[in-house]
Amino acid sequence: MAHIRKEFLIDNAPESVWEALRDVGAVHERLAPGFVTDTRMEADVRIVTFANGAVVHELVVDIDDEARRVAYAVVGGSMAPKHHHASMQVLAETGGRSRFVWTTDVTPDELAGPIGEMVEQGSLVMQEALNA
């Protein structure tokens, strides 16, 4: 199983960053606008459309307000791997800043490259959107 971990700093208060992250049905508006072009919820499954045309169905496993952590698993769509579980967490940093931690486990290992590239691109977009 491949493991992908991305961390970056955000010049915004953890409460503000968490408010955007926990709004799981508005990824295309609040968290990764442009990288994600549409998000809609069907019960606890989030259907995400990316700018490259890929569509994934993500089971929202947990929204933890205390830990400021969202966990999800890809369960279908055009990019559904054998296994995919990810979490995104907001941690408080000094000076009113935030640390964003995105962790993904995926099989088969060959998907680590393409998914890692998407994590990298998404992180840049999120950092810009959340710094605003």
Rank of each mutant, 00 (worst) to 15 (best):
A51Q: 13
E7V: 07
R68S: 03
S87P: 00
M41I: 11
V56N: 08
V45A: 04
L91P: 01
S16T: 11
P14D: 07
A71M: 07
P33H: 09
V74M: 13
E58I: 02
R30M: 05
S98P: 07
D11E: 14
R22I: 08
S87D: 09
R46E: 02
M88C: 09
L91R: 13
V60G: 10
S16M: 11
V75I: 15
R46P: 01
T49G: 13
H28Y: 08
V45Y: 02
H83D: 13
V75D: 04
R69H: 05
V74E: 00
A54E: 13
I10M: 03
E66T: 15
M79V: 12
D64H: 03
V56Y: 01
A20L: 04
D11I: 04
A51D: 14
K82F: 06
A20E: 04
D65C: 08
E19P: 04
V56E: 07
V45P: 01
M79S: 12
A71K: 09
D38Y: 10
G77M: 06
G53Q: 11
K82R: 15
R5H: 12
E58M: 06
A26T: 07
F50T: 04
E19H: 14
L31K: 00
F35L: 07
S16K: 15
G77P: 04
Q89I: 04
R46K: 13
R68V: 06
T39L: 02
N12W: 02
A43K: 03
E19F: 05
H28A: 15
S78V: 05
A32P: 00
M41L: 15
A13T: 10
A26H: 15
T94Q: 14
V90Q: 02
R69K: 14
P81C: 06
D62S: 14
E93D: 12
R30S: 10
R22F: 07
V75C: 12
L21S: 01
A80K: 15
